[in-house]
Nucleic acid binder design. Sequence first.
DNA 1: CGCATTTGACCATC
DNA 2: GATGGTCAAATGCG
Length: 313
Amino acid sequence: MEGMSEEKCALVAELVRVLEMVRQLEAHTAGQQQLGGAAAGGEQRCRALVCTMRDSIDRALHMAMSCCAGGSSPAGGQPESPPSGGDGSPRSAGSDQAGGDFRGRGNAARQCKKRKTLPKRSTQVRVSAVQDVTPLDDGLSWRKYGQKDILGAKYPRAYFRCTHRHTQSCSASKQVQRTDGDPLLFDVVYHGSHTCAQAQQQGAAAHPGGSTQGAAGPVLPFSLPSNRPAAGADDAGGSRLPGGAGARGTALPFVSPATPEGLARDAPHHDAELACTTNSPPIAHGGDGLHVPAGRRRFLGGPGQLLLSTNST
DNA sequence: CGCATTTGACCATC
DNA sequence: GATGGTCAAATGCG
């Protein structure tokens, strides 16, 4: 623990730098918003800042990970942290298919167990508005595979995994959850790392023109109440209609704390709901960010202020 | 028509 | 015993 002081100092320094840059970026974006968003020069500057931020954050994360692996308190304060940061081998798609009769139910648990061996990174992303998910977009393909209410948490936790998980054995996954304290603050926990080709591209050079299907779209990690306040009465319950997408407007798994009237109030039915396809890590890349899934869901949220805060305690 | 999202249920771990 | 995490089926939208 004592040996960590140096690392901690470096980590703090990095984080401070990031915060500073973020502040600048924030000021810029704010200015752009006021001006109307027609500032090419500012955009370039922002991009450069984002680039540097990414670098710094990456280093900070590496340090944090080292600390975590060393036995120090986990970066995100998560109660459970993997003892070893060993990158678990990407589960072979064929291994679990052995039986082919388990419907995957039994496998689910196994996945869970395996996932814990993957390196974990936790970060927090703040959005400017409840529907603003720009900072959550990293250009990578994330597919939501579940959402669950967490005991003690006001908001549900969304589970994402790489879209190319099966095709490219990308074991990256992440959990996104709103902090009960700040509705605008998202707690993002990454498990594993992207090994898919898209991630490589993102890492090498930010390519905004991602045309890959389901490439990336800034979407909220949670399904917001599209409308129909009727079913709002019982949420925990069991009056949910079986049959996924169909029950969209019926169940209210996640009620935005801010309850932006303009958002869910009389929204027709396509504005209020913020589906989830991809979110993004705080590690902004050099790209512009806004990728829209080939032809998938619509998303809300325009470019807004972005504030990054990394867990330091 | 295809793909992504949503929800319920199941299983493992603590 | 309780909670968290993941999968599969169904449905809707582009």
